[in-house]
Design a protein around this nucleic acid. Sequence first.
DNA 1: TCTATCGGTTAGAGCGCTCTAATCCTGTAT
DNA 2: ATACAGGATTAGAGCGCTCTAACCGATAGA
Lengths: 331, 331
Amino acid sequence: MATPTMEDVAERAGVSRALVSLVMRSSPKVSAGRREAVLRAAEELGYSPHAAARSLASRNSRILGVLVSDLHNPFFAEIIDGIDVATHAEGFELVINTGGRSPSRERAAVTNLLSFRPAGILLLGPAVPASVIADAAAKLPVVLVARGSRLASVDTVQDHGKVGSALAVDRLVELGHSRIAHFDGGKAAQSAARRTGYRTAMRRHGLEPDVFPSEYTEVAGEKAAAELLARGDPLPTAVLAANDVNAIGAISTFGRAGLRVPEDISVVGYDNTSLAAFRHIGLTTVHQPRAEMGRLATEALLQRVRGERATPVRHLLRPALVERTTTGATS
Amino acid sequence: MATPTMEDVAERAGVSRALVSLVMRSSPKVSAGRREAVLRAAEELGYSPHAAARSLASRNSRILGVLVSDLHNPFFAEIIDGIDVATHAEGFELVINTGGRSPSRERAAVTNLLSFRPAGILLLGPAVPASVIADAAAKLPVVLVARGSRLASVDTVQDHGKVGSALAVDRLVELGHSRIAHFDGGKAAQSAARRTGYRTAMRRHGLEPDVFPSEYTEVAGEKAAAELLARGDPLPTAVLAANDVNAIGAISTFGRAGLRVPEDISVVGYDNTSLAAFRHIGLTTVHQPRAEMGRLATEALLQRVRGERATPVRHLLRPALVERTTTGATS
DNA sequence: TCTATCGGTTAGAGCGCTCTAATCCTGTAT
DNA sequence: ATACAGGATTAGAGCGCTCTAACCGATAGA
């Protein structure tokens, strides 16, 4: 069980430890013969370099820290996918911590991430106070995903929520809808932008905004739909939900009330989670390029790490409307 | 940007580096006064211990490595959740790597994980050859989740696929079904156990097994359902799908063919992913206690790490049937 | 023949920490 | 006063590696 060290490999190959180090870092200044001897010795011993010792000695780390506020959320899983690919392509490794959706645990997770002395960190939808972010940003490059910041030292990557909502409203209007309600995501991330985008777009079309407070959950969607039905009056002919699961909740309430989707009422989600794509559901929704967001975030981080850039970058990704079967023209 | 070291804290607090080290490890043999002074200095400097240096010096790591074969799969996300909680409770940290569903990339990920010299590693649904696992197990404790092994040096945590399938079949029989088909998961993890469980249970009831080759995807579920319909004859009155998404695929095909679920045909999924719980879907499915699996896996690993056990543990978790709206009695 | 050059190789210091053994106090017993 | 116990503190070595500077030997030019 005693793991072999560089010293062991050197001895076996009959060279110095420094030479082994050069081979391990695939330096060009090693003769072919020695290189092969070292590689063979390493292979025989089952040696692989000690990452901690390496980063300690080189005083620069090949690690990127990632804080995921919620691993359950498929939204983040796909972003991590993008991060993962970009990270490995550049020869970096990931240390992932999850925040368990609690600011205090997230705070601890950030401290923990820092103890690895990563080259930089990526915070995915963090719920920590801005001061924590500022403190971290004073020590190393920080990139925020799905959260904004005014700090010049941090970069941000978000989807353009206003545009996304506008996209949905515009299309609904095009389909002949004029009474379009919005189920609002409350104080959760991104929901303010989505609400503003909805309001602005409605006014631009000369329509009256109609916002129902809700949340990013299925249950909240059911509830908001029930409230909408209870209000009676002329029912809206379309709903822009807070997000996909919220939309699905709304759809089941409508279904139980005898309303057909989309014949009686159109529903649009937001996020284009894998859920929306199920044929069985076929939810029209606003797509965010998640893998792309992960890639851009990693790229921005590595630029800072390499010292190629010191000015902040604010990526606002253009969302797209994906039309499936829950929207249709008014009759 | 220069991160403070223990030396800096020591100087500021007017003590030796060794004393700071003791405080950082919350040793009892430090006077209250000094402890406070050190903590204050650390706070002021924004100091946090360097994990790499720490593990190098103490030559024992507080890191657990995790390889996730597929981060997209919500199944793993929940297992990680269980791992995460158990890990932090014991003062360990996680280094997560993803395998991207490719054996070669998984292999690289394992090597990478090892370079962190973790105390042990958890492999979630790994697709690497057994030899890779054996090599790793020769160096440190290894626990396999959702994959079996005969190696005495590795522990395994799986759900009892045979029992799960039998549970579903038994219930369907109880509901009056006798023509029950199974959509098979092919060579994917766990599918052999599920198939065997299905076959055995059917025979036990004196029924003829009816297996359709399929896969763990929605599209495969649609296809298998189409084949089943094309075969004609007396249609099965129930289907035990390979997993949840497979079941959902089957349901949409049935729906498009004019078959009502569950009136005309009952469908049971497997995994109880968050998907199944949506009211809109309401899939009857076999539940695996995922967070529990994560917890048990971590526990097993830490036992090995602490040298408390050298004999292998084989956790076979008891699944449970969750009845929702896609199953009903035969008419 | 002597020196400069240059690719290949190595010695040795040091990264930030832990850990052992030694040292330093302070109070108490003699 | 002297010795001693025992807790608090510190010096110093060393973890596995990288990196700088020095070194070595062979070739080439003078």
